[in-house]
């Protein structure tokens, strides 16, 4: 279900962003919106769509080697699905160091335990966790911060 760009052209300094839901989540308006937003910022977006199995995401991520993976999920299972998924991405040499962020509605309680959840997801391996009320444009700031990356582990040979 690789999608063509919805609208805009890629800017010269544009990044490649892999955008995806998690395996149990079929919501896609969030993905369509984020794809448009990221494209308008000049980035190239590959949108994997709804109900993406972990294996498919790991495979696409290994093949595409994006600058950033954005996981967006709102069905309330993001905490469980996200933690499992990031474990798989972090255990693959080719995706171990790829920046991966997650956002949306990650639990079913309306953000009641948001802080604990965010901490668990970061310690499971996410580079950043955005809550439901986060300004989506913050992904842009996160991408900009990648221009001055902190020293990270060398990426395994490609």
């Amino acid at each position: 279900m690789l999608m063509n760009p919805l609208n805009a052209a890629v800017a010269p300094r544009g990044r490649t962003v892999l955008l995806s839901s998690v395996s149990s989540d079929s919501h896609t308006w969030n993905l369509v919106f984020l794809q448009l937003l990221l494209e308008e910022m000049g980035h190239r977006v590959i949108n994997l769509g709804a109900c993406v199995p972990d294996e498919l995401l790991v495979r696409e991520c290994s093949a595409i080697r994006p600058d950033l993976v954005v996981i967006s999920t709102v069905n309330g299972h993001g905490q469980v699905d996200g933690a499992r998924l990031i474990g798989k991405l972090r255990s693959e040499p080719r995706t171990r160091d790829t920046p991966v962020v997650i956002g949306g509605k990650l639990g079913i309680t309306g953000g009641a335990e948001a802080d604990g959840m965010a901490r668990r997801l970061v310690s499971a391996g996410f580079s950043a966790v955005f809550q439901d009320d986060a300004e989506p444009a913050e992904i842009g700031r996160f991408l900009a911060s990648l221009d001055h990356p902190a020293p990270r582990h060398p990426v395994a040979a490609s």
């Binding site: 395996s23 149990s24 079929s26 109900c51 069905n75 309330g76 299972h77 699905d81 499992r84």
Partner: peptide, 12 residues
């Protein structure tokens, strides 16, 4: 029904 059942992910 929940989202796992919808995608037949009974293990999760």
């Amino acid at each position: 029904l929940d989202s796992y059942t919808r995608v037949k992910d009974y293990d999760t």
